[in-house]
């Protein structure tokens, strides 16, 4: 295969990785503070995308400017989910969290379908016609913006966690909830904040997804969410650098690996397309990683 083709596909993988990272970081944050895994995180991405769609359709302003609005809106929804659903079951066992998330998935997907139909929605980015060519590689301007946005989000997030009082309090809560509470940190407020931030990051992912020219529909969240889980499992629960590395790796691997497999079986005279194996490959990687290291590659011990 041509190197330029490979590089081009790396670009598509990089973009996919950005979405996974934003989702995974939010999940990780919630897990770190509350020790809760929200399986309905993909539905927050979906709601974020719809929020962006409606704000854009009703106001018509530059879609990149509405990301912040969508994030605030989802942050508020996140607080409600935390207070109404996850707070009451905290400490009643992990199975309950899984089942509760399942209920949330059914609720949000079908509520969206009921309110906004299952038809697909899209946003028209003002830059969708612009693309930068480097050699034979095409870089649509929207992709460059999305990658830059993701980096900015990550830097801002890191600064918030390390430099602000609130961020430090959240980190303290993640490390030791009881000790944090004894030190006067309002841990329940931290729970709410972590859910708000996690949901907002999911909304950012959803908005960027829509702006890049993909579509929104009520079921769009499930697959990216599954990938985000794979990312945090591979990268290790609670590890931000792990999530970044794993997110990029997964984004690239699922785009490039099918082609390698295809070329490989081609050597034996088998002509077969593996591009439909994207999800299957993600799970294979996940399972192999977990069999070798049940806590993930960068996983921290303990819960």
């Amino acid at each position: 295969m041509d190197l330029s083709v490979l590089l081009q596909i790396l670009v598509w993988g990089l973009y996919a990785g950005c979405i996974y990272i934003l989702l995974a970081i939010g999940l990780n944050l919630i897990f770190g503070v509350m020790k809760v895994v929200n399986f309905a995180h993909g539905e927050l991405l979906m709601l974020g995308a719809y929020a962006a769609f409606w704000i854009y359709t009703l106001s018509g302003i530059n879609p990149y400017l509405i990301i912040a609005l969508a994030m605030i809106l989802l942050g508020i929804i996140g607080v409600f989910i935390e207070r109404l659903c996850f707070r009451p079951i905290m400490g009643t066992g992990k199975l309950n969290e899984i089942f509760l998330s399942l209920g949330l998935i059914y609720l949000f997907q079908n509520l969206a379908a009921l309110l906004w139909t299952t038809g697909s929605r899209s946003i028209h980015s003002p830059y969708s016609d612009v693309s930068v060519s480097i050699g034979s590689i095409r870089l649509p301007l929207d992709y460059i913006i999305i990658i830059v946005f993701t980096i900015l989000f990550l830097i801002a997030f890191q600064l918030f966690m390390k430099r602000t009082t609130l961020g430090r309090a959240m980190r303290a809560t993640s490390q030791n909830r009881e000790a944090a509470a004894l030190m006067g940190i309002h841990v329940e407020r931290m729970d709410m904040l972590s859910f708000a931030l996690g949901s907002a990051l999911a909304a950012a992912a959803g908005s960027l997804w829509l702006i890049s020219g993909q579509i929104a529909n009520p079921y769009m969240g499930s697959i990216p969410a599954i990938k985000a889980f794979a990312v945090i499992i591979i990268g290790g629960l609670g590890s931000i650098p792990g999530a970044i590395v794993a997110g990029l790796t997964l984004g690239i691997a699922e785009n490039v690996l099918p082609l390698f497999i295809q070329s490989f079986v081609g050597l034996f005279g088998v002509s077969m397309s593996f591009t439909a194996w994207k999800d299957t490959i993600a799970f294979f990687i996940l399972i192999i990683v977990l069999v070798i290291r049940p806590t993930g590659i960068f996983g921290e011990k303990g819960e």
Partner: peptide, 21 residues
């Protein structure tokens, strides 16, 4: 070229790149 994709896939860029090639 004959590329496959999973039902309700939303990102066809890789497959289309291979087809373009």
């Amino acid at each position: 070229s004959a590329e496959k994709f999973k039902m309700s896939e939303t990102d066809f860029r890789t497959a289309l790149t291979v087809i373009k090639e």
